[in-house]
Each structure stands twice: as structure tokens, then as C-alpha cells.
Design a binder for these strands. Sequence first.
RNA 1: GGCGGCGUAGCCAAGUGGUAAGGCGGGGGUCUGCAAAACCCUUAUUCGGCGGUUCGAAUCCGCCCGUCGCCUCCA
Length: 497
Amino acid sequence: MKWLVLRAFNTLTGRKEEVDLPKDRPVRIYVCGITPYSSTHLGHARPAVFWDTVAKYLEYRGNEVYMVQNVTDVNEKVWTRSQLEGVGEKELARRYNREYEDVLEDLGITTIDEYPWVSDHIDEIIDMVEALIEQGHAYQVDEDVFFDVSTFERYGQLSGQSPDELVAGARVEVDERKKHPADFALWKSPTENQPSWPSPWGQGRPGWHIECSAMAIKFLGFGFDFHGGGTDLIFPHHENEIAQSEAYADDSPFVRCWIHHGMITGEDGKMSKSLGNFVTADELLSEYRPEVVRHFLLSAHYSTPLKYSEEIMKKSQRAFDRLISCVQSLDQLLDSNPEEDVPLADSEAEEVYAVADEMKREFCSAMDDDFNTARALAALFGGVRKVNGFINTPDFALSADVKQALADVKDQLEICSRILGVWPEKGILQDDAGPDTVGLESEAQQELVQLLIEVRQEAREKKLWGIADKIRDGLAELNIRLEDTPQGTRVRSTREG
RNA sequence: GGCGGCGUAGCCAAGUGGUAAGGCGGGGGUCUGCAAAACCCUUAUUCGGCGGUUCGAAUCCGCCCGUCGCCUCCA
């Protein structure tokens, strides 16, 4: 496979640019993670699924990937919530982080190499703040330390606004001790009895922003390849990250390409806790299979807002069903013996190979073009449609050559699907049929279903349609659907989730 | 008020200079004992509006409208 250039939209420059992928070292990626103070919702799942897909794609492309996602466990929100629940800040963070990790595991996210915690990097943070003070980029007031925005001429580059413009519309009252209203805290004294750490400026806590700079530089070095996060983090978080990091290193750029994903929205705007319109990842995963959730999250380009609704989830469910159905058809053909002396077997096989090639080409072209997962999904399903069309033609015959070509197309479907995470990882009947379905363990249930199919088949051969339909209808009520195909009766679970 | 994103069929969504992918839904057919699934045909003379550049614009430029986000320690 000959790779073309990868292009990505860089928030810093505001345009799509070519990204040279390093050949002698891993692609280094930092993605803003969560603040573990409440349940994981869909908005947290989007970046995780998106970046997991990017990493898997880059690996498929032949690049190693090293990806880091932080855990902001020292933070006002964590503190506030811990007070409400009457537990320690650390304990609360651990609990919600565990929940987040479980969701990531359910969603098949396997590409994140490090999850650094802020509370484990206080030393690095203090070192960085000290250096910034020495360099004249930061100043101490009482027991707080602020970054001096006026010493960094590129301030505002990412968000496209000057410090004064930012201040003009500010809705918060400004700390009078700051030299410039846009200055931000690097280190601050604790309120009440918050956990705090000793520092040259007294007991205190890191400000927001500084932890990401310190941890990104520690794990990835200065000038790494991609930095991801939500559009809501562009200002102030990422703007400040750039300022303090580039000031600290006296170098530029801190990040080669900034990628910001759009917000998940509910019926009334951005999904957030304060609006109460969020859907937790757990809720969704109890209703839909992870592959379906991934399909939904990848069905629009990462940069656009994505509206959640029950209806749209049903669409993703159907799309996933379509993929499964195609794979099952392929499996059945690959399990059967090829016919001999099939006319035109060569050209038929060529046709199938062409489907696989075209799908792969279009898939890669979509991913290379600013990680366009919506287009990649379209390429995948285009392949599904063509395969279905091919094996459904009236004069379709399974020659040995065609069989081999179909095996190839199935491999390609699997490769593309696995990158996106929509490949049915777990069996469709076996794992779906929990005890609630028919009150039996799955293996016993399978055997039972097989028996029923055989009985029904005998009934059909004797044209006892009433009995045959009773079995089919009865199983349908248990969410087990029977489909009669020329290759025999196929079993499908219609249970969602 | 400032900055940025977005606006494509009933719905979701690709398409960033060469004449509108795909999916869902709808309509018609094929297959089937009947179904289901699948397949085939069909469903936007036009891309929020108005101007401009160009042989040619959904694509580039300007203005306007709508919408979302940020300017609050939010993914």
C-alpha cells in the first residue's frame, strides 16, 4: 500500500495542513482526559473513541503511537464534590476514574499508554513554576503564583483573541492582585482544608493548565505531534498551556497539530451536568452494544457537534446489524464447499477483489483526510453493499476462486471495522443471550435453539407451516430471530445491548 | 459585545473549483410456503439568503440571517 499524505485541521493555524508522521519514533499524542468528579457521560466517550480510532489507524498505517491521557484529580470540582459526599478528594477521584476506565474498556479502547495523575506530578509542576518565575514569566503574590501574560507575545494565538479582547467580555470579576486581568494562576494557596503540597511559596495546590504542560512535556517531550481536546478547552485551557510551555522552553511550537472535537449535544444544547441533559456512558452501554455506541460517535466528523437522540442510536443499531448480517453471509459461504466448473470464475473473483481494494482505498483516503470517520464508515458500508449485491445475484456461484476472493473481502472488512471498533468482537448469539433471555446458560441455549431449528426444518419439509411458524414466532418473542436462506436457517439475536 | 465552528432531501451525513456519496425513512419490484434479511429501481435541477470572483461555485471572497461553542477550573 502506498500511503499518501495525512492531512489534519490544526486549530492553531485554522487550516487543514499536511502532517509529516515521524518514521524513526512513535507518533506522540496527548489528549485531555477527565476530571473525575462525576459519572462518565457520552461527552467523555467521544474523544476516547475518536483518538482510539486515530491511534489504531496510524498503527495500521505503520506508525507506532505513544498516547497519553491525563487524569485531573486535583481540582476545585473534585474538591467540592468530595465535600458534598463526605469523602476525601483522592478517594472520590479514584472512584470516578475507575468508572471511566471501565467505560473505556467496554468501548474497546486499547491504545492509551499512560494515564498520569496530577497528584503524582506535583514535583514536576513545582519545578516548572519555579523556572517560569526565574525566567520572568511568572510572579508571586502572597502565596499564589501567576503567569504574566504580557511576557508572552503570542498569547491569544490559539483562540484568535488578544488578551484585552478576552478580558472585555469576561463574566468573572478579576483578582485585583493580578498585573493583567488575563494572567492566570500557576500555583495557589488552598482554601479551607483542601489537600495541599509544600512549595517554595507555601502550602498550596497547582492551578489549572499547568499540570497538562508538566505532564505532556514529561511523557512526550516538547514539540510533540498531536494534542487533542474539546472545543470548549481552546480557551483558556489550551491557550494557557501553550503560553506557559513555550515560555518555559523558550521554543515553539509546543504542539505540532492541535485537534479539537465538537461537543455532544442533547435536545437543548451541549450535554453537561449543569443542564441535566446528559446521558451516562453506562446507561447507553446497558442498552446498546459498544460497537453501536462507537458507530454513533464516529458517524459524524470529529469537528462537528453531534446530537444525541434515541432515534439516532436506532440508526446506528441498524447499521451494525447490516454489517453483522453481511459477515454472517460471508461466513456461511466460506464454510461451504465451492462448486466446480463455474463459468467466468476468474472474472467474478477479480470483481470481488476490486470491491475489497476500492473499499480499503476509500477508507484510507477518508482517514488521511482529517480523520474523516464518517467517510470511512461510508466506505465500509459501501463495501458491505457491494458484497451483498454480489452474493445475491441470481446466477451467483461459489467457485474456489470466488471463495478465496470473498475471504479477502472479509479480511478487509474486518481490518477496517476493527480500526473503527465496529467489528462484532463478541459472538452475536452466544454473548447476547444472557440468563434473562431464556433462563439458560448460553451453550445449553444454543443447543436448544439448534434442536428447535431442526424440528422446524422437518415441519417445513412436511409443509406443516403452522408448527414451523409457531417455533419462529415463539423464538422471536425471546429475541431470537430465524431467517431462512438458501444456505439454511440463520439464527440472529435481536436483543440490543 | 468579541472570537471560532456549523448551516447540503422528511431525518442523519459526505462532498473544499469541473456539474450533488452513503445511510435511515417513504414508494415500487425481486427472492420466500409466508416472513425476515438481502438485492434492484425510485425519492435534492440544487447545497441558509443576497451579491462578487471564475469558462465553471455547495466549494473561493464580502455582507446578512440562523445555530452551536468559548470568553466561567467543562470532553
